[in-house]
């Protein structure tokens, strides 16, 4: 059975409809790439999963319908979100950001700082004073501290220096090999996605238009739906 299942999901922002029918399924321990050009509905799909916006269709997590749940209950079921733009708690220190999110489980301060040693070095520093890359690591660490079963990374490497991007991708690769966590990655870096993901779903104009494993994701398909 799939851990996460979306069937014919629709969503709108006021009068304008953003999702017209998204289908995707993600199994336990699977790493899935959600891809598409800008404005095709990737982040809206994430917001719909996390119940940050109302959505039509069916969204199930671990067999449970998320339709009536508030956002925080979805997170408690085990959906950890690393939001686009990082959105750390700016006035709190690194440690406080992590402690505020902590829920019981294998992920604790020690394990997060082992994954991102830089966070350990900057433990007492307020989030607002961190570099973009460090804030991204903190956002991932914060999501891990909730001990999720599904980690959603929304544009986790966007706008970062190449060397920091490498660090983030290396951490994602470690999560894939060292944990049983399912991961949903939204990104445009095809080569990196190929290295860490099992399958991909392409979105176009608010619809899922292609689903397949990474081996069958040909350059033609990538060019057509992502433009790379």
């Amino acid at each position: 059975m799939s851990l996460l299942e979306l069937h014919d999901v629709t969503a709108r922002y006021g009068a304008s409809q953003a999702l017209f029918g998204v289908d995707l399924a993600l199994a336990e321990s699977e790493v899935l790439a959600l891809m598409g050009r800008n404005g095709m509905g990737k982040s809206t799909t994430v917001k719909a999963i996390c119940r940050m916006i109302p959505a039509g269709g069916t969204i199930r997590f671990d067999g449970r319908d998320l339709a009536r749940l508030p956002s925080h209950r979805v997170a408690r079921l085990g959906v950890g979100l690393v939001p686009e733009g990082r959105r750390c708690f700016r006035d709190l220190t690194v440690r406080e950001n992590l402690v505020a999110a902590a829920r019981p489980g294998p992920w604790d301060m020690a394990r997060v700082t082992a994954l991102f040693p830089r966070l350990g070095e900057r433990e007492g520093q307020v989030a607002a004073s961190l570099s973009g890359g460090e804030q991204q690591m903190l956002a991932i660490g914060r999501a891990l501290m909730t001990n999720p079963r599904l980690l959603i990374l929304d544009e986790a490497t966007e706008g970062l220096a190449p060397i920091v991007r490498q660090e983030i991708w290396a951490a994602i690769a470690r999560l894939r090999t060292e944990t049983a966590m399912a991961i949903l990655v939204i990104d445009k870096s095809l080569s990196e996605l190929r290295a860490v993901c099992d399958r991909a779903v392409m979105l176009e104009r608010g619809r899922s238009v292609w689903t397949g494993d990474m081996a069958s994701l040909t350059p033609e398909i990538a060019e057509r739906y992502v433009g790379v």
């Binding site: 940050m52 508030p70 956002s71 939001p83 959105r87 708690f89 999110a101 909730t146």
Partner: peptide, 17 residues
Amino acid sequence: GAARQVPARVAAVGLDP
């Protein structure tokens, strides 16, 4: 304190603001 700054993010880590 975090809920005062960004309530949506607090909900995203499983806490009800």
